[in-house]
Amino acid sequence: MKNLTIKMLLVLGGVSVISAGFLGYVYTATYDRIELNREKRVKEAIYKVLPEIDDYEKISAEPDIFKGTGGGVKSGYAVLAGGMGFQGEITMMVGVNEEVNRLMGISVLESVETPGLGDKIKGIDFRKQFRGMPILRQKGIKVNAITGATISSDAVEKIIQKAIKDVKRIH
């Protein structure tokens, strides 16, 4: 009986130690690439919402806000913002012009919205309405919702409102 207890402890402990070591190895081996992929996606999203900038700098962390440089009048801020969608978290890059009175565009980084309905928030037909959309002093913005995907559309509106608030705080 006692022998069995010791054997069980040894096997469970041994298996856990080996798998922890193996995972540690794979984690260090893939860490750099995973970070690189994440940075690349953020960078691509910034250039997508502020297409005419030459470069950008990070001016705030959590919320992450980037200020585009160059591009003259077409420069502005890019804000990384997120919120709850229909099925899970939506992460978006929101572009705002320098005066913070117009949107420049949005780009969805991560979402798990329903394919064919909610995930149309990633499509150009939905996104193009934000290009140059005026930001009103009282109401902020008003989104034209996707038919059959009211919750996803409302979530996008809420995230953009939050992003605008974040920019105004530092503007």
Partner: peptide, 18 residues
């Protein structure tokens, strides 16, 4: 379960990286 979870975590990290 520990063995399976280890391999799943490896798959997750490799997919994220590559």
């Amino acid at each position: 379960t520990v063995i399976i979870a280890t391999f799943v975590t490896v798959v997750d990290m490799v997919l994220k990286a590559y």
